[in-house]
Amino acid sequence: MIVNWFRYSSPVSFYPLAGRLSRAFGVLAAGFTIAGLYIGLVVAPTDATQGDAYRIIFLHVPTAWMAMLIYLAMAFWSALALGFNTRLSAMMAQALAPTGALMAALALWSGAFWGRPTWGTYWAWDARMTSTLILLFLYLGVIALRSAIDDPRRADRACALLSLVGAVNVPIIYFSVQWWNTLHQGSSISFTSAPKMAMTMVEGLLVMTAGVWSYCIAVTLARVRSIIVERERGSGWVASLIARQGAR
C-alpha cells in the first residue's frame, strides 16, 4: 500500500491527523507512565550501593535521553525547513522547542536531586552536566529568538540556523563520559553492551522511556495544532475550521 506522505506535509491535512495521533499518544503516555512508575518505585529492588535514591534514574535517564533526542528532531525539521522551505517542518521545529527545554530542565533538576545523596553535591561543573546545561540554554535561545522576530518566515530561518549550529552539542553530551574523565558515570544501557543493571530496573527504565516518548509526541502534536491555527489564521480552511468547531 502506498501512502502519499506528501499529502501530510501540508498543514490542512496534517491538522486533523495530528489531533488523532496526539490523543492516541496521550493515552499511551498515561498507560506507560503509570506502569513505569509502578515498576520503578514499587517493584524494582533497592540498589545495593545507593539505596532508594537510585530510583530517580527512572525519571532522570528518560528525560535526559528525550532532551537530546528532541534537539536532534528539532535540528532535523529545521534542516528540512531550510532546505525545502516547507511551512510545516518549521512549525514542527517550533513546537518541539518548549518540550525539549522542559525535558532538559527536568533532567538537570532530577540529576541535582540524585547527585546530592550519591556524589555529595547538587551541582558540579562536570562535562556531562555542563553540556546538558548548555543544551537547556540553546533551547531557551531558540525560543527567545523566535519571539524576538515578528516575521514568522524570518524567525523560521533564524531559529533553524541556531538549531543546526547547536546540534554539535548533542554528541558532546552523549560521549562526554567516554571522552573525558567525568564525575558522571557511564551509560548503564547502551547499544553495544549488555545492560549493567538488574532486569527489573531495565524494564522500569524502558517502560518509563516509552511513557516519556509518548508524552512528548502527544504534547508536541497538540502544540503544532495551535501553531498551525496561529500561523494560518488568514486562510480559508482555518475559517471553516472555526466555523465548524469553534474554540470549544
Partner: peptide, 27 residues
C-alpha cells in the same frame, strides 16, 4: 520514606508532575 531519601526522590518526581500539569494547562 524511600529508605530515607524521600526528599530527593519526591522533589524529583514532584517537579516532573508539576511540570507536566503546567505544560498541559499552557497548551
Amino acid at each position: 520514606a524511600m529508605g530515607g531519601y524521600a526528599w530527593y526522590v519526591w522533589m524529583s518526581y514532584g517537579a516532573a508532575a508539576v511540570a507536566v500539569i503546567v505544560e498541559i494547562l499552557a497548551l
